[in-house]
Design a protein around this nucleic acid. Structure first.
Length: 120
DNA sequence: GAGATGACGGGCT
DNA sequence: AAGCCCGCCATCT
């Protein structure tokens, strides 16, 4: 099967499909794309998003909620902005600005993922 | 094609 | 408990 989409293209497409109020971890997103250890590459892909992009990048979080990792200088947004956006979507954070990932995790079936990546 | 890079993740200190 | 280190992997130079 010709796979014309690059890995980072798939990352963006799948990110667009995350429902409001739901999140996914870098590692799980990579796993859905068939590369369970490519969490870092997922970050690499999202990093290419320009400021003002309509892609809901805030819904991709670290494995333990939204802890750290967002403080890279080349990124257009801050960790605080990510948290603020997620709160607006209804995600409830505790006093440490963390939230229970399983409660908000988006878990599409493999079929759904395929349908998202290969719309007809 | 080798080396560098980076929004990760897990393990060890 | 917070940080450091190292392995991973897709892309870019």
């Amino acid at each position: 099967m010709s796979d014309e989409l690059h890995f980072y293209d798939k990352v963006i497409i799948l990110t667009r499909a995350i429902p409001e109020g739901k999140v996914i971890s870098y590692g799980f997103l990579a796993e859905l794309l068939g590369a369970p250890r490519a969490a870092r590459a997922v970050g690499y892909a999202l990093r290419t998003l320009p400021y003002g992009s309509d892609v809901p990048w805030q819904r991709v979080v670290g494995k333990r909620g939204v802890m750290g990792k967002i403080s890279i200088r080349s990124f257009a947004y801050s960790r605080d902005e990510q948290i603020a956006r997620l709160k607006e979507e209804g995600i409830q954070f505790d006093e440490n600005d963390e939230f229970p990932l399983p409660d908000y995790l988006w878990q599409p079936t493999p079929e759904e993922v395929q349908a998202i990546l290969n719309p007809r």
